[in-house]
Design a protein around this nucleic acid. Structure first.
Lengths: 221, 221
DNA sequence: CGGGTATTGTGATAACTATCACGATACTCT
DNA sequence: AGAGTATCGTGATAGTTATCACAATACCCG
């Protein structure tokens, strides 16, 4: 067992999140116990990597046997802090925001969408997910504080990303997940993560253009 | 200058993509020339890191001066393969798919959406972006081949992610960007990248729950 | 109940990535 | 034109992350 000020690789955390999904899938398939090899195959990570990742946090398996699927799932959720409810607000209900609000995975992982905001007056009041009505930006700070929002999701255009982040900070959130293609700045006590969809595509483009020169299969002449 | 079979860190590619955005912003602000320090400040990367990243691909700056903003932007685009058009198809026009189809950034980076597919019969024929009408899944393979699609974006539910990927491969794409929370498998000649939005949020949850115990500011009593 | 087998947990090692420090060099100004 | 200054490019170094190999150990079976 470790976890005493030792720093955990970010990649490990990312994989832990993936393990949850794979474990749930394996559980559905009837595996009550999984080995690191089986889990590794399922989520395309080496068995050693999985064991190492888990070893940062304790001992969860039984030698010679493997891991109890359901138990391990629960334990990883505890590690990631998914054993509690995270009140979450979202700002910017465009298509992306709308998609996130209705993403059932979130609810399953403990994120509760407590409010959604948009600056477009025409959208105010619209029910965007069950029981969730769009509120004007002006109510962001007050509502966030009242609902004790812990996480703010930013899905506004780049031009208003910074002002949105500022309001969320004022609203008392501890973490911000930013989808806008603009590197916002937040006070030190607020944790920030940026998701850059364009960057992912660009990465793909790089791999395609640099790696393998390969031709499309044509009709055999 | 390098770039001769030397492997480039993936993180470098990710940053290069970010540099483009920052450079364009700085250009808008009137900077015709930028130093690694200025650029670094703008995109929150150390100056040394920027120079190192660029050094993998050549020499783009002038000692004592800096980089010509517009030129560097163009050169990074060449590095990433963004100096050409990438015919792209998208499968699964839910909210997320819809958001991506209308994301203007894509067009600016050279991705041309040539087709969109969905399995819902009610959506077929709907114009989802300018000049782009939703087609049935059944036409995926033929259309992709005809349009010489290079990239396929998967925004379908997890349950149909694998079958969608299979069709895209059959349709001749070289790369797949998968947003579904399911680790699809593709033949070796196809490059795959997964984007896990849940994983990003989980990462945030982990940081929040493990790092700093901090209390919400209440009214001063 | 003891040997055989499977599979974990982890220290050691290798591979990768970022940071640092400084030589190289182009522009500026007198 | 030469000294001074700014800033790049990069080899060396430090730090981080993944892989490996094997000791530890729990279950199975006769």
């Amino acid at each position: 067992m470790k976890q005493k000020g030792i720093k955990i690789p970010e990649a490990t955390i990312k994989r832990l999140s993936a393990y949850i999904n794979c474990l749930e899938r394996l559980d559905d398939k009837g595996y009550q116990v999984v080995s690191s090899e089986l889990l590794g195959e399922s989520c395309q990570v080496s068995p050693a990597q999985i064991r190492k990742d888990l070893s940062y946090f304790g001992e969860f398996g039984v030698r010679g046997v493997g891991y109890t699927t359901k138990t391990l799932t629960e334990q990883i959720k505890v590690i990631l802090g998914l054993d509690r409810i995270w009140p979450t607000v979202l700002v910017g209900v465009g298509h992306l925001g709308h998609a996130l609000l209705n993403f059932t995975f979130f609810r399953e992982h403990g994120y509760r969408m407590v409010a959604a905001f948009d600056s477009d007056p025409r959208k105010i009041g619209t029910e965007v997910a069950e029981g969730l009505h769009i509120q004007p930006i002006e109510e962001l700070v007050e509502t966030s504080n009242r609902e004790k929002a812990a996480i703010g999701i930013v899905t506004v255009p780049a031009s208003s990303a910074q002002s949105t982040a500022d309001l969320l900070v004022e609203g008392g959130v501890s973490g911000i997940l930013n989808f806008a293609p603009f590197k916002v700045k937040v006070p030190e006590h607020v944790t920030l993560r940026n998701v850059s969809i364009v960057s992912e595509l660009d990465n793909l483009a790089y791999l395609l253009s640099s790696k393998k020169p390969r031709r499309r299969r044509k009709k055999i002449k």
